[in-house]
């Protein structure tokens, strides 16, 4: 099957700063793909290259089978991290305007805009100006503007940021709807739970370099199993668990990794005596843990390389 997107050793520099370094990845058609990474890791630059807003300094990419994304711009939908609307425009007008910019003819775009807004609960807002809307509503309008032309590949940069739980669910539904329609969705996020719940594939970049890429199962495979613990009681005690190599304590929930050879049964027994255990899971680590561990390891490697010089 042809890939919706593939990058081959793509590099982008701004002056002496390398934003993306020799990045290669493949995004199969019809999947949901998560871009992970810290702020400034290079996610947005990568996305901008895909959208042909930037051009790579080295390497090549192929979007929907074309080397130059500009040729397929009308089949792409893009919601940038920094989202804005024309405050003075009416919601239906602006959604239709985005459609027209993607090559839809005027009357189709107008009809479709009204239909979409009504379907997603903004029917009363068709003739209201954007400046009157709340942030969540504004974001909804932006997403609808992104997908009005039924793009084959949708790229959402931080679609969940700043949304309340209800709107987050709505955004999730929207992404899943697109997958059902066999469209490809790429989104970047800091919320690991969203990635874990939605993504078929994830990749992570750190300081311009790819750290891992694959299906969730592939990414988690071979990693240390850990204890997922929900508890009530003194978190300080959990930290003292004998045989623990590493404890990520959140107060009510902790992720615990044991030294090799330590039996989780022993750990459970020790814990049950000291705190009230509500859930005890021994399983592969969370994406959150993988993310944090990757950052730490990569930084340590960089520091070692720096010391070696």
């Amino acid at each position: 099957m042809q890939n919706a997107l593939s990058l081959h050793a793509v590099t982008k520099r701004f002056g002496s700063f390398t934003a993306v370094s020799e990045l290669s990845l493949e995004v199969p058609k019809g999947c949901i793909f998560g871009f992970l990474g810290q702020n400034g890791a290079g996610k947005t630059t990568t996305i901008r290259m895909v959208m042909s807003i930037f051009h790579p300094d080295a390497g090549s990419l192929s979007v929907l089978g074309h080397a130059d994304a500009a040729q397929v711009k009308d089949r792409l939908g893009y919601l940038p991290e920094e989202k804005g609307l024309y405050k003075k425009m009416k919601t239906a007008e602006i959604v239709a305007y985005f459609g027209k910019l993607k090559g839809m003819d005027s009357s189709t775009a107008n009809l479709k805009a009204k239909e979409l807004l009504t379907r997603y609960g903004l029917g009363d807002w068709l003739d209201k100006k954007c400046e009157a809307m709340s942030k969540g509503m504004g974001q909804k309008v932006q997403v609808l503007g992104t997908i009005i032309h039924e793009p084959d590949l949708v790229i959402l940069d931080e679609p969940f940021s700043g949304l309340d739980p209800v709107n987050r669910d709505l955004m999730k539904d929207l992404i899943l709807d697109m997958k059902r329609q066999r469209r490809t969705v790429i989104f970047s996020t800091h919320g690991m739970e969203h990635a874990e719940q939605l993504c078929d594939y994830v990749m992570m970049i750190h300081k311009s370099k790819l750290q891992f890429c694959g299906t969730l199962a592939e990414v988690k495979q071979g990693r240390d199993l850990g204890i997922q613990l929900d508890y009530d009681g003194d978190g300080g005690i959990v930290q003292k668990l004998p045989g623990a190599r590493r404890v990520n304590d959140n107060g009510k929930h902790a992720e615990i990794f044991l030294q090799s050879g330590v039996d989780p049964q022993e750990a459970l027994r020790w814990l049950v005596e000291r705190v009230r255990v509500r859930r005890f899971d021994y399983r592969e680590p969370s994406l959150h843990e993988i993310f944090v561990r990757t950052v730490e390891e990569a930084n340590a490697k960089l520091a070692a390389a720096g010391a070696g010089n």
């Binding site: 500009a70 711009k73 009308d74 893009y78 940038p80 920094e82 804005g84 985005f98 910019l101």
Partner: peptide
Amino acid sequence: EEKSNRIIEVLLSSVSP
């Protein structure tokens, strides 16, 4: 204004600079 409104990037996904 358009730049500070952050709308530019949305537009740039559809039209060239």
